[in-house]
């Protein structure tokens, strides 16, 4: 199997789906010749042309609305916003229009669209270009939320997202684009709603998402040296959420730490912990812990930004505090 980056895996997923299905097209700011803000759509314009890789004005409502409108009329758009933070400009088209159409119309419409958005801190892009907003999207019935951590998952989840007949929010972490991993050349899917146990362990379950999966794996390595066996569970999608796999893991380890880069308060971890509390509270031998960003906007200055981003050390500390 070839080693590819997370970015290459995403690019390959779009290329394969565009080759397979003429209704699949890309729409967004600078996705054409420029190749996308982070280069994820590189080469697709040359391969598929301007009719299928469509540059838009800097008007996010129009991008998301055009995706919803073209999806409900039969196409399968893959829209890109440069940064998840820009969804604020387009929220109505997503959550009042795209998300609700199927339900409001009594199941007689489908909205097969994918909205890709990079999120996360780490490049000193400050408060309006660095957030992790997955909890916003999890809260809206009618949309699905994928949040891959590895190149392999990125490709398989994106292919699934594109084939979905529902709007899928696809959250990429900008610090993961260069991360390498084994990715088959051929097409494959990873179902939305199926968690992956990234490392098996016996003593503590760490449920981590996106870039924090890598921090959790690093922490697990460190903790193994102290004789603590950590199981790392990556939900891979937050809606649907595979709470079964999480609960099974907690039943085995009797301890839970949740790690994400979104701010802790009302973050995605709150839902994960609530699910465990409802389904497996009696199995917990210790209080649960959250490792998350502090409740403030993402700061600019490098030392402040680094202090904002929760890392492996914080996970190690959280796990040790349980014992």
């Amino acid at each position: 199997m070839a080693k590819k980056t997370y970015l290459q895996a995403l690019n390959e997923a779009m290329r394969l789906e565009m080759e397979r299905d003429a209704d699949v097209f890309i729409i967004g700011e600078d996705v054409g010749k420029f190749g996308g803000c982070f280069g994820v759509t590189q080469g697709l314009f040359d391969k598929f042309g301007s009719e299928r890789v469509i540059d838009t004005p800097i008007t996010e409502s129009a991008i998301v609305g055009a995706a919803v409108g073209s999806a409900v009329s039969g196409l399968r758009p893959v829209a890109e916003l440069m940064f998840v933070d820009f969804i604020g400009c387009a929220l109505d088209q997503l959550f009042n229009q795209g998300a609700k159409m199927r339900y409001m119309f009594g199941g007689k419409a489908k909205v097969p669209m994918t909205l890709r958005m990079p999120q996360g801190a780490g490049v000193c892009a400050a408060a309006q270009h660095s957030q992790s907003l997955e909890a916003w999207f999890m809260h809206i019935p009618g949309i699905k939320v994928a949040i891959p951590s590895t190149p392999y998952d990125a490709k398989g989840l994106l292919i699934s997202a594109i084939r979905e007949d529902n709007p899928v929010i696809f959250l990429e972490h900008k610090m993961l684009y260069g991360v390498e991993g084994e990715v088959p050349d051929e097409s494959y899917t990873i179902p939305l709603g199926k968690a992956d146990v990234k490392r098996e362990g016996a003593d503590v379950t760490v449920v981590a998402t996106s870039r924090m999966v890598h921090s959790a794996l690093e922490a697990a390595e460190t903790l193994a040296a102290s004789g603590i066996s950590v199981e790392v569970v990556d939900p891979r999608s937050l809606q649907p959420l595979d709470s079964d796999t999480i609960v099974e893991s907690v039943k085995k380890t009797h301890a839970l730490v949740v790690a994400h880069e979104a701010v802790g308060f009302a973050g995605p971890g709150a839902e994960i912990i609530a699910q465990v509390a409802e389904k497996a509270l009696d199995y917990l031998d210790a209080p649960v812990k959250r490792v998350a960003a502090p409740f403030c906007p993402v700061p600019f200055s490098p030392p402040l930004e680094q202090a904002f981003i929760p890392g492996a050390d914080a996970i190690v500390a959280a796990v040790k505090s349980l014992r």
Partner: peptide
């Protein structure tokens, strides 16, 4: 924006 998307469908096809 939805209408623009629907019209884009026509143009695309």
């Amino acid at each position: 924006p939805l209408a623009a998307g629907a019209a884009l469908s026509s143009k695309y096809r």
